[in-house]
Structure formats: structure tokens, C-alpha cells
């Protein structure tokens, strides 16, 4: 995870700020191997109703079903402009982005949300 905050006072009246956090997170599992139970013949039919059906003791790919891999970026870029001693106008853009590179049962969660904000602050 990285974060960066920058605050720049450009003039007595104008101030810029940037806040950003970038994170990468994964959850993964190693392959499972060699899991045939002791004393069990894997080629033995496992169902009297279906003698051709044999056990599949290969668990080497089950880690793929629930591995997780996300990267997220959240950042805000904004400015404040002082109109006078008490009043300030502000504006900002906030970006939230999530990339889902390993899809789990919730489907692809990748998405982006952008928020634009503006207004005025008065101190008293």
C-alpha cells in the first residue's frame, strides 16, 4: 500500500491538495497434491450404481476457485480559494477505482466511482 498527500499553498488565497492511496492485495492458496487417503485405491469404483466412476483425488486446481486479487486506487484532487478572511470556495474530484483480477462468486467486482464536489465554507 502506498499513500501520498501533497498540500501546496500556491498563493495567499489559493491552496491545492492531493491525497492518494494505492493498494494491491491478494489472497491465494498453494496447490494441494498427494491427497489420496491412505489405504484407498483411487481406481476403485466409487459408486455401485456407476462402476465406471472413479474418484478424482487431484485437488491441484482448487486454489483457483477462491483466489483473490484486487488493486485499488483512491485519490482526491482539490483546491480552496479564499474570497476573504472568512469565506472560502472549494472544489474537488474524488476517484475510487477497484480492479478485480481474480473473479470469485460475486462476479467481476471491478468498478470506478468519481465524485465531483464544490461549495463554499464560511468561518465565524
Amino acid at each position: 500500500m502506498f499513500f501520498l498527500n501533497v498540500n501546496l499553498t500556491a498563493t495567499d488565497k489559493l491552496n491545492f491538495f492531493l491525497e492518494g492511496v494505492y493498494s494491491m492485495s491478494t489472497g491465494s492458496f498453494s496447490s494441494f497434491t498427494g491427497l489420496t487417503p491412505e489405504g484407498i485405491d483411487p481406481s476403485f469404483p466409487i459408486s455401485p450404481d456407476n462402476p465406471s466412476s472413479v474418484a478424482d483425488y487431484d485437488f491441484s486446481s482448487i486454489n483457483e476457485y477462491s483466489d483473490l486479487d484486487y488493486s485499488q486506487l483512491e485519490g482526491t484532487l482539490g483546491l480552496n480559494y479564499k474570497l476573504d478572511k472568512r469565506a472560502t470556495v472549494y472544489g474537488s474530484v474524488n476517484l475510487m477505482d477497484l480492479q478485480d483480477d481474480q473473479i470469485y462468486v460475486y462476479g467481476d467486482l471491478s468498478g470506478m466511482l468519481v465524485t465531483y464536489a464544490a461549495g463554499m465554507t464560511v468561518g465565524f
Binding site: 467481476d108 468498478g111 466511482l113 468519481v114 465524485t115 465531483y116 464544490a118 463554499m120 468561518g123 465565524f124
Partner: peptide
């Protein structure tokens, strides 16, 4: 301090998790 303003949000793809 008191602030009055407005915001507008928009999204693309899946907004549920982000």
C-alpha cells in the same frame, strides 16, 4: 465553520464493492 455545496457522483462497471 459552515459549508454549503453540492456533489455529483458517477460510476462505471460495478459500483457495489468500490
Amino acid at each position: 465553520t459552515a459549508s454549503v455545496g453540492a456533489h455529483y457522483s458517477d460510476f462505471s462497471d460495478n459500483p457495489q464493492r468500490v
